[in-house]
Design a protein around this nucleic acid. Structure first.
Length: 117
DNA sequence: ATTCTGACA
DNA sequence: TGTCAGGA
């Protein structure tokens, strides 16, 4: 048996995600509608979250709190997916990708601030 | 008991 | 974003 945790397994309830991220149900659903993230669904159409979803939501939350726009986060996310497709020889984890893009966005934010100064 | 979607006094 | 309705 693998020692790795199955981070893709959809097992967490909305209630748990709310407690873990301090986001409201409204926000968690809104980010999905805006195309920032996709969740699994139960047979009763209820959202079921994986640990990766949890990480992604925390990532989105941090970016928004940094002043990043929804559209900007979308763009970076698309770049993330394209990068994963192109990296046939090297596998990059979702966590690593988020760190890379967080740094990238933070840098862009700094550039924007300098322009405003 | 919980969550879902749509809508807005 | 909050919140309420009406249904699953």
């Amino acid at each position: 048996m693998s020692k790795e945790i199955k981070r893709d397994l959809p097992i967490l309830s909305l209630h748990v995600i709310m407690a873990l991220t301090s986001l409201t149900a409204r926000q968690i659903r809104y980010y999905e509608k805006k195309g920032l993230i996709t969740y699994h669904r139960s047979k009763g159409n209820q959202r079921i979250f994986s640990l990766n979803d949890l990480d992604e939501l925390v990532f989105i939350k941090e970016m928004l709190e940094s002043g990043e726009s929804i559209k900007n986060i979308q763009n970076y996310w698309h770049k993330h997916k394209n990068m994963q497709q192109n990296l046939t020889f090297k596998t990059i984890s979702d966590q690593e990708a988020r760190e890379i893009f967080r740094d990238e966005m933070m840098r862009d934010l700094e550039v924007g601030k300098n322009k405003l100064d």
